[in-house]
Nucleic acid binder design. Structure first.
Lengths: 345, 345
DNA sequence: GGCATTTTTGGTAGCGCTACCAAAACGATG
DNA sequence: CATCGTTTTGGTAGCGCTACCAAAAATGCC
């Protein structure tokens, strides 16, 4: 065997095909290959063809890490949400993913468990990946996190919640308005003894915003808006069923329950089915989200539907617009919601 | 003002604090700072303290991209699944995320829509991020994809499906056995005219595996196992309801329906509730997955429960074991399943 | 105390790619 | 055909970090 070059290949150099290999094979400079990969129209047709052939022949796959280090971003979009066990966020992520999937951007997933300190730490970490942009749930963040996000000079889209001020762009719903809307509906339907049921309200301030809207509307109508039940568990069907029974025990005269999401509300209806409690005759039930299950229940659930998937799509579009060079003031979008009145109220 | 160094800072150098800045501030060599960040116990206490102070003082956040380029991996774990709208995968991802979250690894999300070519392309892309390892759904891949995964010399965990041969490690369930198990239960319960209902069976071969197990078991018992209904939509409650009615129309003498997942089965029960069809007296319904909803229905759904979250946890553990230097043959785990008999059969 | 051994620290080079500028090739114009 | 402007191509340096080796300091042992 021939004496192999000694001393070369010091690092790993695992034998992966590099841009330089392609360049050599095509008989051009590395930078030309780079151009073919990233800005094909800057290269003459002849050379482009030649390079593309070399790429195919060698099975070259660009090292995005090296590219990311040399240039600006890595075509990674971190998405930071409170939880991956809550369907809402999953739907939004799905919308983002679907919109980004053919643009060459990849989602980096992070969850904070509703903890703003954890969120700040996570932001630091993901900024270490030189992301092209970032999507993050909520408008409230630690001061440090906001500074870092502003300093990184990259598009930032804040989602879920629509509000007056944002770091860069914002897509979401007005939670207080959602609470008001459903409360108004219940009042108009003639219900007077209404409780609000939430979960994890200590941490999830968007639930609090909805509750406050609800309360405000009831008090405007001269009704006691302070009837509140909450617990600290995840919003499962089971929890919904239990909270339903607890609410009726706590306030025996109740004629309606406004749940902070459809999971709990559906759990309540399923529990009512099991126990033979009649909804809405014995007690009305309302939810929030517009989950697919809501319309399949008996009785079908009155709910406020939020276009979660579309919210993700819009967030991704804002991000792409910024990445596409769109400058100027904040891109903002109130994605809206729809009151869907069904048989449960 | 002093004349600023001309010619320096050619690239962006956005002013981010670098490892070199920290080194200067602490009066040590850059490599020492690197060690403090990555292998603290290789550095004396004195210097370590000094460096840590400098890190805090300057607010240094490591550039993982640069680190990834210089060394092996980027502490990114791509997770490639068929779909983000299917709860099963979400639960698994959640398990992975939870297990990895405090280890400094970040999830990179990719979905293939059950398309193996798309999967192969996605694998190429994510390998461009020099990931530390990779988690991917399924044991069947394009030849090219398998080659790339083997060539990348990184831990690969194949999930969802448990089988004889895998690239590196494997955590999953035996789908055919699941199909057999539920079919056996139905036969033992005395049902004889049984249909199987699936969706997207053209693409989701794991559903086919369950169906084949089901069919095999029925035919072993001398029962016609070929009664099959399928469609191409996503497995929603609505679809389940519709398929339920279609199945009863196609095979009017049916006494049981074996659905390929709980979404469809739940949709069937909800539809039955709406129409006053009695389950299981008029017709029995069985599912697969063990979704939380299954036990809240009336009647509660008989299902095969799969520890999805735990599957994710186990996959992440295998990955961490490999990353921790564990060598040797394939790490394999049949995560198992549990037949949960409830009122619907 | 002298020597070998271990631990701690630092210098140099390079991971694979792209920004920046300069050179070359090409076209158009009078 | 010379001049100018435009497009296409290439050379050089460097993104921020870590691998590798070597030097320095600390430790152990006879």
């Amino acid at each position: 065997m021939g004496k192999t070059e000694r001393g070369r290949r010091r690092h790993k150099g695992v034998g992966r095909v590099t841009l330089g290999d392609v360049a050599k094979h095509a008989g051009v400079a590395p930078i030309t290959v780079s151009r073919v990969m990233n800005n094909p129209d800057q290269v003459s047709e002849k050379l482009r063809k030649r390079v593309e052939q070399a790429v195919d022949a060698l099975g070259y796959v660009p090292n995005l890490i090296a590219g990311g280090l040399a240039s600006a971003g890595t075509r990674v979009i971190p998405v930071i949400v409170p939880s991956l066990s809550i369907l809402t966020y999953i739907d939004v992520i799905h919308g983002i993913q679907q919109t980004l999937e053919d643009t060459g951007y990849q989602l980096l997933l992070g969850s904070t468990d509703f903890d703003l300190d954890r969120e700040a730490a996570l932001i630091d970490t993901v900024l270490g990946y030189s992301p092209s942009g970032i999507i993050i749930a909520g408008l409230r963040h630690r001061e440090r996190a906001i500074q870092r996000l502003e300093a990184c000079q990259r598009p930032v889209v804040e989602i879920m919640e629509y509000g007056a001020s944002c770091i860069d762009s914002n897509v979401g719903v007005d939670n207080a308005e959602v609470g008001r809307c459903m409360a108004r509906h219940l009042v108009e339907r003639g219900y007077r003894r209404i409780a609000y049921v939430g979960s994890r309200m200590d941490r999830d301030y968007r639930t609090i915003q909805r509750y406050e809207g609800h309360r405000e509307m009831l008090e405007l109508a001269g009704i006691d808006g302070s009837r509140l039940l909450q617990n600290d568990e995840a919003a499962s069907y089971k929890t919904g069923g239990r909270l339903f029974m607890e609410a009726m025990a706590s306030y025996p005269d109740l004629d309606a329950i406004h749940f902070t999401n459809d999971n709990l509300a559906a759990g309540a209806i399923l529990e009512a089915n099991r126990r033979g409690i009649r909804v809405p005759d014995d007690i009305a039930v309302a939810g929030y989200l517009g989950l697919p299950l809501s319309e399949c229940l008996t009785p079908a659930l009155t709910t406020v539907s939020v276009p979660r998937f579309e919210m993700g799509v819009q967030a991704a579009k804002f991000l792409l617009a910024r990445l596409d060079g769109e400058q100027g003031e904040a891109l903002r979008c109130d994605i809206g919601f729809e009151l869907i009145v069904r048989d449960s109220t």
